[in-house]
Every structure is written in structure tokens, then in C-alpha cells.
Design a protein around this nucleic acid. Sequence first.
DNA 1: ACTCCCAACTGAAGCGCTTAATTGACGCCG
DNA 2: CGGCGTCAATTAAGCGCTTCAGTTGGGAGT
Lengths: 351, 351
Amino acid sequence: MKSPAPRPDDRAVPPQRLTIKDIAARAGVSIGSVSYALNGRPGVSEATRLRVLTVAEELGWVPDNAARRLAGAQTDTVGLVLPQGTAKSLGVAPWFMEFIGGVATVLAEAGYGMMMQVVAGLDAELDVYRKWSRGRLVDGVILVDLRADDPRIEAVRTLGLPAVVAGPPEVADGLTCVWTNDGAAAQEAVRYLAALGHRDIARVSGPADIVHVKIRQRATEETAAELGLRIRTWHTDYSVESGRRATREILLSTPRPTAILYDDDLGAVTGLAVARELNFRVPEDVSLLAWDDSNLCQTTFPPLSAMSHDVLGYGAHLTRRLLEVLAGAPPASHEDVTPRITPRASTAPPS
Amino acid sequence: MKSPAPRPDDRAVPPQRLTIKDIAARAGVSIGSVSYALNGRPGVSEATRLRVLTVAEELGWVPDNAARRLAGAQTDTVGLVLPQGTAKSLGVAPWFMEFIGGVATVLAEAGYGMMMQVVAGLDAELDVYRKWSRGRLVDGVILVDLRADDPRIEAVRTLGLPAVVAGPPEVADGLTCVWTNDGAAAQEAVRYLAALGHRDIARVSGPADIVHVKIRQRATEETAAELGLRIRTWHTDYSVESGRRATREILLSTPRPTAILYDDDLGAVTGLAVARELNFRVPEDVSLLAWDDSNLCQTTFPPLSAMSHDVLGYGAHLTRRLLEVLAGAPPASHEDVTPRITPRASTAPPS
DNA sequence: ACTCCCAACTGAAGCGCTTAATTGACGCCG
DNA sequence: CGGCGTCAATTAAGCGCTTCAGTTGGGAGT
């Protein structure tokens, strides 16, 4: 034991960390001044600030996020949790993925990081928020797929964790939110089908307790009633299998609806395959209308008519609002663009 | 100015942070012991450890990740960067999304977090690794979509940033890697089509500089030569539009190939639509074979034959290896399961 | 009975950064 | 010319945790 044995885990470790101390020395000022200069805070002259910035650049200094946080600064990271279901069939949840794309792009531009976590259920999700908040891992979070009386609202509030809600103000309960007018969109969808001459419409929808599902359902039914149409709803859990089953049931029911209005786009794509499988022609025998218009709708034949909604833009919008909240903006409700009908070849008058 | 004005940004902040000091006081030991107990390190008796853990649980203590990192502990976070292209068409990149699902699930189970970032290009990506590494934001990263002589390998090495590579050892250059035998799979695909009687095969492939594209290309061509088949390759950038164009060109070329082998599944789905658009019957007029078998392949009619590969499982495997590396495992190369043909209705003998 | 040893525990030094408090230097006013 | 306000810059006190160097207090060994 004459020479100290090397520690077992000393794999390539950068010789020594470059800190503001090094910058201070090189620029000939104190570390305090360096910090002020680097953060654009008053207390240093422009000349000094410039010098410090130059030195930092030259040396290739990167702030130690951990130290910065500890000392009370922001994390510059935002959190987003994925429901487990989404992860399981992640490849086929175009909505979620485009949404993430929008979020991630805005965050990257703002120099923010993004933490993601999949959770098995609501309790796990609440735990994650606690861990993120108390562990100083994120500055704020984005809440999606809101349910009625969603416990997450209360949870982030008591944690003091800034958040924005993807949903209407009724459910955001005072938190900042961004929402689309799904009621108006559902109305447009029904009117569109009615104008084509459809009198018996089926609706394939998600779980009944999700807020946007409820809103669309209500608007759909009201509009149908107004126009004297028959409307029936099938609920799915957004999985491929349940979507397939719903469409099959619809197409084999009597009287058979002449149009199907979906709550997502993957469901509609699946529905199209089922229709062909059962030898129904689209749109001659049955019209199909998707919701959320990912590229998927254009990769089918015939291409699917859809209630188009720029999901990527929606994610981006939401994220910008979150950044505002982090900057101290008071809670507010923001309306995003209303989904609009994009007619393609999957809808036509009933024969 | 008699009473100090409240700071403008004092939105609901938890009164005071719960620290190990509180636990120490409550458990009647020093903070050092608390740290040892909490981290399962030797130096405390079982009795004390238990007491500390109980108190921590009761108080609902959550470790301050920032402090922990600063003091030298691990981050318990892993990073993954998304190429921008993926983000743009994120909803239609099933491979990537399933992959993320696998990664995220394993990380969640291990109590790790996941940082994600979209980047515009390679330089930006290298910057991200620097920021993550030097900023102590992640413990390690996963590298995907390797190119020949990929500069990222060298970058993470000089940063001392632990990483695992999604690709064969030839490109991992000494880093831990997990790979699938795409050569063998490509061979199987060609043999399968040949066995059905196809003599003229088209291949729709990704950018030529991606390693797995090259490998598959080579194996495909060799096998074709061996069997005396004609094979031609069209390169796309994996976008829907370029995939559509490739299939159209193939179907309108003379002599017209009787089978198309795709490099992904989205491309095959798109191809199916193009075929129908141009009034070709599948599989009577042309057989379609997808690669990477996401649920998408089963949502079409006819359902697509595919080279099945459990992408979610691949992501999970890779992540487990990364965790091993973080735990100190030496670099190693691991082979994942080879993609296997899953025949469905989109392939048949040429008519 | 006395040392020696080791397990159990404590104390204190940082980790790299932010920021309140403090000091110095300078110019301006009465 | 003394006093004072301003601005630039420094000093030093943490942030909550890990960890290393000590310190204690029993046994075991002889």
C-alpha cells in the first residue's frame, strides 16, 4: 500500500472543471463581478462586462447548472409527463408526438431544457411533480389531457410549481391555459356532414372523462339535435384495437350510419382499413372524418378529410405561455386557433 | 418606505425547504449520518438507517437534486437528442417514438429522469452534449442515427460523457453499443421476396450516409446478386413527400419492379396509398414489404408485411446498457434480436 | 487490566454559483 | 473643502448535499 491505488471508477474525467473563478482570474476581476457580467445584471461597467464575456467565450466556459440552481437561480428546464398508455403505443400517437415537437422546438430556441417522464397512473404523475418541484429539477410543467376536477391542478398549485394547462379555463381553475374552441369545431364538423346530406352519423370518441371529449360530445349532440340528425357515440381508449372494434360495430349496425366522425386521426386511419376490410367503399358507402390532421391523413388512400389543427403550433403556443408565466406573467386564458374542416376525398354525399 | 415592499415575484413559494438538516434534527443524528443512511452507504447501523428513512418518509422529504449534483453525486438523468427533422414530422416518425417509449420506461423504473432536446444540425447537437456534460445536467447520453465517422463519438469521448451507441461496433469505436444484425435481416427480406418469385425488386431507402442504411444496402445487393435478382435503390430523406415520390417513380418505371422493400414503415404505408392512387393492386400487381413494424402496419388494408423489430424493446435494451455503463461497466458490444419477417397480406407471388 | 481495533457517528470542508452587504473612487453641491 | 450620492467592484455568506478526516465507545485479544 505504498502508492495510493487509483479509484476504481476514474474513467476519463475532464482534468478540472472550468469555473467562473478561472474567468475571474483571466479577466482580472472578482468572481462576483463575473457573475454579474454573465447574467446581464447591473453592477459592472460595460467595458468589464464585455471583457468577461469575451474571456468566457474564449475559454469555452459552460455554466454549472447544478451550482446555479443551488444558489437560487432558475433551472431553465421544463417538465412534461407522458401517460404510460402513450408510451406503449407511442409510435401511433401522432398527436402527442407533434405536440412534443412543438414544445421542444420553442424550448430549444429559448435555451431551455425539457424533462420527460412516463408514468403509470395519476398517483405516479403527482409524485413526479413533487420530485421535480422539490428536487429543483424543473421550473414549470405543462399539463395535458385534463379530466374533470383534475387533481393535478391542485397539486401543482400547492407545490407552487408554475404550470400551464392544455385546456379551457373552466378546468384550468385559475392557472394559465391555452385552449382550442372544440365546441365550435365540433359544430362545424357536424354541419359539414349534414350539408353533404348525412342524416345518421356515428362518432368514435375517447374516454368520456377527458375534458375535450366531453366538450366535443356535447357540441356534437346539440348541433345534431338542432339539425334533426341521428347521432350515436362509441367510446374507445384511443388504442388501435378499440378503434378497430368501434368502426366494425358501427359499420355492421342497423341502420348503418353514413358518416363517421372520429376524435383523432389514428382512429380514422384504422377505421379506413376496417371499412376496406369489410368491403365498404369510402366515401361512397361511408364518409370518414378525422380530427387532428397529422400527415398520416395524407398517407392514406383516399386521403382523409379532417378537422385540421396545427398541433405542433399548439404545443409551441402553450410553451411560449409557460415561459411567460416563468417570467412572472399573471395567470391568463389564451384561445388557440379553432380547428377547421379540411375536406379531402374521404367524405362525400351518401349514395 | 417603512415596511419592506414584498418582492415582486413572490408567487406561492413553499414556506421553507425541507432539508436533511430537518431530518437529522428529528432523528437525533448528524446530517452526515443522514446522508449515509439515505444513500445506503456504510457508516451507520441498521437501526439508525431505518430511523432516518422512516423520518424522511414521514416528513415527505425529497432530495434537492441540484445540491446533490453540486456535491458530486450523479444526476440520475439521461439525455437524448432529437434531430430537428424528426421533430418537424414527429407525429409520423413511429420508429423514434416507440424508441423513446422504451427508453423512457426503463429510465422511469430506475428512477432516472430523461432530458430531451431537438437540434437543428450536427453542430447544435455537439453543443448540446457540451452543455449537458459540463453543466452537469445528465450522466450519460444515447446516440442514434449514426453516420460513418460520426463526430459525436469523438465528442462524447473527449467530454468524458458516458454514452451508448445505437449501432454496430464498427461505428461505436470502443463505446458501448447495441445493434441489430441488419445485414442478416436484409438478406432474409430479399430471400423471402425471391422465394415468392420476385425477380425485380425496388428498394426505398433513407439517406445514404446513415450507417444502417449502408449496411442494409450492401446486404441487399449482395443477396440479390447471389440470387440473380435485379435490384434498384431509391433514396429518400424519410419524409412523407420524398417517400411518395420514390414509390411513384418506381411504379411508373419500366420494367416495373414487382416488389418494393422499404427501409421504414411509414414509407411503406405511404407507398401503399400511392399504389392505390395509381390503381395498382397490392399485392397482386406489386408486393410491399415494410421495415420496423409499428402498429401502423396493421392499420392499413391490406395489412403490411414487415421486417418486425421490437423497437420499444430495443430502446429499453439500450437504456439498460447505458445504466450499466453509468454503474461502471466496461465498454461492450451487445447484439439485439435480428428483425424477422412477418408476412401479412401485402406480399404475394407476382402475377 | 490494558492495549488495539473497528464500527458508528460527528464535524467541517467544499462543490460552483448568486447576491446582499460593504468598500472605494469619483464628481458634484452648497 | 467637507459631505454625500453614484457607480464599479469586492467580499463573504450561504444554497443542500456528499465525503473525508476525526472522534468516541465498546468489545476482543493477550
